[in-house]
Amino acid sequence: MNWSWTFFFEYLTNGFMFRGAWTTVWLSVISMTIGLGLGVVAAMMKMYGNAAVRYIAEFYIWLFRGTPVLIQLIIIYTGLPQLGIRLNVIESAILGLALNEGAYLAEIIRAGIMSVDKGQNDAARSVGMTWRERMYLVILPQATRTIIPPLGNQFNGMLKTTSLASVISMEELMRNAQMLAQINFRVLEVYSVAALWYLLLVSIWGLIQQRIEAHYEKPFGPAAAISPEAAKELKKAMQKAGATKV
């Protein structure tokens, strides 16, 4: 057996690994936030746009859900310069992850909006709200309830998906582990530590997620009047999004 506790503990307390984990965190948060913005816009375009606008949104969702993130990242970082579009590593990583995430979130957000009872829109219009006001004051606050749980699962996935950015040399947890592995060839020890870091990050997120969900589970109304069709739609979107917990 060739397992070295010395190396294991050395990696566990290694500042380089810690910085990698930190990068993983902020890369996830930024990509998720931008992805959420893209998802909202794409969902709105798909639900309320005219034919051309809808088609653009559908194309975006189809394209980014239909191709591996790995290829998306590589094309953005190493392929786009051929077209004269040069993005640095960080920009490429964020752009790729956010575009990919946005495509998945669009479907989740759409299902969330559809879960709000139609009567809410009628009521909001009857007191004279514009489309923007209806969305902002009435529809989205209620859709949030249905969107929050799958959104949490998506962020869990994002924490791990960022490891793919290592192939474009984004210095996050995975990439830093690779670099350490190449110095001492203690492959098992260094990747075990990397795996532990991911477990830690995901577990911390799990605790945060629980608290957020507990907050949003408190009823404000009779189950927010979610229709059976909407519930089905939401379930489908969550499954498509690869959520484990439905």
Partner: peptide, 15 residues
């Protein structure tokens, strides 16, 4: 805004 409407299912804003 100048017309008020009351619905069969109330449609109050539950949130």
């Amino acid at each position: 805004r100048d017309l008020g409407m009351v619905f069969q299912n109330f449609n109050l804003f539950p949130h």
